[in-house]
Write a protein that binds this DNA or RNA. Structure first.
Lengths: 339, 339
DNA sequence: TTGTAAGCGTTATCAC
DNA sequence: GTGATAACGCTTACAA
């Protein structure tokens, strides 16, 4: 609590506060001998600079905010782990808030974070954001905002880091087509968000380029976390279209629902029905049969986001122009026994 | 960035900084009319107090640290969500760090957090901590440490919040016994940590009190996150003891491994083998058959922890004695189709 | 009821 | 090479 201060060190050493301060920070213009003396005592007394005072003076809190839709989620908790570690490596602390996919909450969190003097924020937008005022305001007030994973094409002057959803589903669908499947269903996310739309487009593109005709009734939306709902929906779909021989799912949880549904109807995987998931949730590798899936490069996503953000923070501090970047990171198809 | 300051408000209003400050915070001794004027302008200019300056002055950062073994984990991410929300409600921000169950990392995180001036810390200890010096030092330096879930009986002057592992496994085991099972296996955690030991004791107590003799070979350790390992271990165990008719698992993931193993050997659940898990992971309710499990009151754990910690912080600030508490929160047995 | 002034622990400018 | 001094933005005795 009552930690040791520069002033205390100074009086102990019979020096001025400023000399001590400079000595500790290896200023060029302070004597070598003084430095060693000062540092010795600092070490002995276990001096820890008060970072609140430093922040006040330097106007930098060395803290970044993160706003995710949720943290109780395989993908986001993994992503946060990476962000937090990379930030830490660079001397930044991370404050996580969750929006619950609610724009109101997201906005108020955003405002609260800048009020609590973060240096920048990483945002994974809630699905139904239509208005970008708050984001623009914050950015204009000098706090960099970096969009991660759930990004918008409509915001300006923000760096963006995301994954190539469209291409990865396009590729996965083609794999099924190439393996001889020709009635492939698609379990999509709710189609009011960019990621879900992109995935759907990837699927449709692949179908359109193939020899079979696109059939809208083979695409059904199921929330990515609802295993049960996926189960029942897919059973229903299979009853209606017994000749479905493949399914692409927008999440692993949903894929596992489909997998259970398929097994419950005594169909063979992948011979009767091939299944592909999305995310490489850890259960995918241990379920029986194991699930082919698309792995998102969580580590690279997180690290890239933090690096870009910190870079922008530093540029801003030095008042030098920063060029915002939009980075798309490729996914990886993981072939297992369900396809 | 260059936000508006009290001083600026003051000059605009031709008042002193202190009056403005007090007016804004509704001090008793400032005129009603002044208050309204000040507040009006503050609102108009969107004045936001600089909380770094406030922190420096008040010596309170309104931030708490949380150290968990991991965040990519159903239980811990849920717990963090609760902590974060409850903290927020009380005006506190939360900084999460993870130890990866490594004492070194945990210690350095602990120290780093106090260096970064948190007001208190919630700690879920890594398994193999034997030394409590760092914790004691921090606590003695005036930063309250609250132990949550993974607690130690050896630390003094810390509040502790945990779950009654022993009783809940004792109860679950008895349920199996009461339902006629008499060769019940136990998949334990690694027995070098309190939670794992407590669970084992609960199991053993129930067996010892029953008519059957305790058989050490029916207890096997499997890391709580290793579904696959559980699968293979349980298959092996069942081969060795084909008459096992029930199994208690220290985690849901492990239970699901056992469930798959059981099905793969064409045994009926729960008639041939009854299975009980631990944690009420969301998959438990949707797997087929659904898994009976022990639900940990995540919300109550999180809220209680935050309330106690903040209470202690406040006491400390006011320099009034605080009585540390040790709270054990009961779990709930959730009966589903696997028992 | 309002204002003055000191101080929180730093950093940074400018004399010495 | 070292040390006053002001400043960051706020709170709080204390004085007016």
């Amino acid at each position: 609590m009552s930690s040791i201060s520069l002033k205390y060190l100074a009086t102990q050493l019979n020096m001025s506060v400023s000399t001590v301060s400079k000595a500790l920070r290896d200023y060029k213009d302070v004597g070598e001998d003084t430095k060693t003396i000062v540092k010795a005592l600092a070490k002995e007394l276990d001096f820890i600079p008060n970072d609140i005072a430093v922040s006040l003076k330097t106007k930098s809190s060395k803290t970044i905010g993160v706003i995710f839709p949720s943290i109780v989620h395989w993908f986001f908790s993994g992503l946060f782990e990476e962000i937090k570690n990379e930030a830490l490596k660079n001397g930044y602390l991370t404050i996580l808030l969750t929006s619950n996919d609610n724009v109101q909450t997201e906005n108020s969190h955003l405002n609260y974070l800048v009020k609590r003097s973060i240096d920048g924020v990483i945002l994974s937008m809630s699905d139904n954001r239509r208005d970008f005022n708050v984001i623009n305001e914050i950015r204009d007030s000098g706090v960099p905002v970096l969009e991660l994973d759930k990004i918008s094409k409509l915001t300006k002057n923000c760096s963006k880091v995301s994954v190539n959803d469209k291409e990865s589903i396009f590729d996965a669908t083609n794999r099924l087509i190439d393996s001889g499947k020709n009635k492939i269903a698609f379990i999509s996310g709710i189609l009011n968000r960019q990621n879900a739309v992109d995935k759907f487009i990837g699927y449709k593109m692949a179908i359109d380029q193939s020899s079979v005709k696109f059939d809208q009734s083979l695409t059904i939306p199921v929330h990515g976390e609802k295993l049960n709902e996926a189960y029942y929906s897919f059973v229903k779909l299979l009853k209606k279209h017994p000749d479905i021989d493949g399914v692409i799912c927008h999440s692993d949880i949903v894929a596992i629902g489909c997998l259970q549904a398929t097994l419950s109807l005594n169909k063979k995987i992948p011979d009767d029905i091939a299944i592909i998931g999305y995310s490489d949730w850890f259960v995918s590798s241990v379920i029986i049969p194991s699930l082919s899936t698309i792995s998102q490069p969580v580590e690279e996503l997180g690290k890239t986001a933090v690096k870009l953000l910190i870079d922008e923070i530093i540029h801003k501090r030095k008042n030098i122009k920063y060029n915002h970047q939009t980075i798309v990171i490729p996914t990886k198809f993981i072939k297992r026994n369900s396809s």
